[in-house]
């Protein structure tokens, strides 16, 4: 559905995207994560045809996006900083999107009204809270009937009930129409619940791009305790992080968890436990491997 190849973007000599590659299959819910300044928003703006790349291609459904209204009509984009016309209410924005997007579904708009009971569609949107403005954005985006939904920090500012509401609307759309979703967010705990694919960006490149299950299967947390000191670990044991509390060592290990366990069992530990890693932990430890880690602050 989405294909980004060797994308390069420079701003005044600074390379924000450095031959970034991304592939998103149709129907996937793809979480785009990365540290601040990794290039996530820049990448999303290329997907939406806002930025013109210095090099590389960005294709949606096999066609280049830039200056292609036919492709642009297939996606809806909800940025982190949403724009509405001054003095516009929801009805006016609906009329605007109805005129711009050929597939805008008015019946869907009316049907979704019950899911946003706190929003008065005739009230000036700018006078609504940030969270309610975001709800309006989702409301309108879903009515466009997009094949691709691009979301930048989508649930930021929403209360927990509305977050679930929004995600349920998105998931229902995915299930019903096989909509592809690309979400950029720092809220990895939430992404873990909704995404099935993850792309981790760092310094303008998509470092890792895998299904969530593969990612969680390729890095594991092992708690192990030995009678004496920690013995020397076997060759080829890829440890991303190690810490200990007394004789209990916690290892973050890259590779197959079962194989790692087998190797450690040969060292006769007192206890050994394989624990699942959250996406947040995978993110922290993977990026720690490329020098982006939590640094201890010493005062």
């Amino acid at each position: 559905m989405v294909e980004v190849m060797d994308l390069v973007k420079e701003f005044d000599g600074f390379r924000a995207l450095d031959s970034a590659n991304m592939n998103v299959k149709k129907g996937a819910i793809y979480g785009l994560v990365g540290p601040n300044g990794a290039g996530k928003s820049t990448l999303l703006r290329h997907l939406t045809g806002v930025y013109r790349p210095n090099a590389g291609t960005v294709k949606i459904a096999g066609e280049e996006v830039y200056e292609n209204p036919k492709v642009k009509a297939k996606f809806a984009f909800i940025p982190d900083d949403i724009f509405y016309f001054m003095q516009a209410n929801t009805m006016e924005m609906k009329r605007f999107y109805q005129g711009i997007y050929p597939d805008f579904d008015e019946k869907m708009f009316i049907r979704l009204m019950e899911y946003f009971p706190t929003i008065n569609p005739k009230k000036n949107i700018r006078s609504l809270s940030k969270g309610m403005q975001k709800q309006v954005a989702f409301w309108l985006a879903v009515c466009i009937r997009p094949e691709l939904l691009i979301l930048d920090e989508p649930v930021d500012g929403l209360d927990p009930v509305m977050r679930r509401q929004i995600w349920s609307i998105v998931m229902a759309d995915v299930a019903e129409r096989d909509t592809t979703v690309i979400v950029s967010s720092h809220n990895l705990r939430e992404l873990e619940d909704v995404c099935d694919h993850v792309g981790i960006m760092h310094k303008g490149k998509v470092m890792i791009e895998r299904s969530l299950s593969d990612l969680q299967g390729s890095v594991c947390k092992i708690q192990v305790a030995f009678q004496a000191e920690m013995p020397k670990l076997p060759e080829g044991f890829d440890v991303l992080h190690m810490s200990n509390t007394g004789r209990v060592y916690t290892l973050i290990v890259k590779g197959d968890p079962a194989e790692a366990k087998v190797q450690l069992e040969k060292m006769h530990p007192m206890l050994i436990d394989i624990l699942p890693l959250t996406l947040e932990e995978i993110f922290i430890y993977e990026l720690g491997g490329v020098d982006y880690e939590v640094k201890d602050i010493l005062f």
Binding site: G49, P79, I82
Partner: peptide
């Protein structure tokens, strides 16, 4: 940037 990004993400060409 907010309005520029919004308008250029719409399904319209720069010529339009």
């Amino acid at each position: 940037t907010r309005t520029a990004y919004t308008f250029h993400a719409l399904p319209v060409t720069r010529l339009q």
